[in-house]
């Protein structure tokens, strides 16, 4: 008389329907329970709130560059010389692995702001200090796998696929920018 133990999946249609609805409800419940756990892994609100950084440009002399930390990553702020700007503008876009005009990468010609993380595998390229190797294009050189970036932070040679990323920033005055 007692069931032999097989699941009562087969049977009258009403039986199946009840089983199906119940199982569906339970599945929705399980999914609903999983969501808060996954969402808790996303950046918390205080982390999202610390997303901006103010940088004072006055101390940076022409030809100099500084590195600031923003969202845990280095950001290169370079005060470009006229020669740097001319060299960047003189490049034909077809030559570039990741074509982008220099004008599209800066808001004011003499200030270049890029995230200092190589787009290949994430090393921090050299070129910030006067004694650093700057690569063949006088920009930055990544020692990990030999990517060369130019004075606009664009990839010219090497395994990196894309130009150095330009973060969102805005001039809050002539001598201050807000990144993020």
């Amino acid at each position: 008389m007692a069931d032999s133990g097989e699941a009562t999946a087969s049977g009258t249609p009403r039986r199946d329907f009840l089983n199906l609805v119940t199982a569906a409800f339970a599945a929705v419940g399980v999914g609903a329970v999983a969501w808060p756990f996954i969402a808790s892994l996303e950046p918390a609100r205080d982390v999202l709130a610390l997303a901006t950084l103010d940088v004072d440009l006055e101390p940076i002399a022409e030809g100099q560059a500084i590195t600031v930390m923003w969202r845990g990553k280095p950001v290169f702020v370079r005060h470009r010389t006229a020669a740097d700007i001319a060299a960047a503008r003189a490049v034909t876009l077809a030559q570039l692995p990741d074509p982008q005009p220099d004008q599209a990468r800066v808001q004011r010609d003499q200030w270049l702001v890029v995230i200092g993380v190589c787009t290949h595998l994430g090393c921090v390229p050299l070129g910030q200090r006067p004694t650093d190797a700057k690569g063949e294009f006088n920009g930055w050189f990544c020692p990990c796998h030999g990517s060369h970036y130019d004075t606009s932070g664009r990839i010219r040679r090497g395994p990196a696929p894309r130009n150095l990323e330009v973060p969102q920033y805005a001039f809050t005055s002539d001598t201050r920018i807000r990144i993020g």
């Binding site: 808060p36 756990f37 969402a39 808790s40 996303e42 918390a44 609100r45 205080d46 982390v47």
Partner: peptide, 13 residues
């Protein structure tokens, strides 16, 4: 307190 206030669904967990 940060879990309660800032972590997504932290108060629930």
């Amino acid at each position: 307190d940060r879990i309660m206030r800032d972590v997504n669904f932290g108060w629930l967990i």
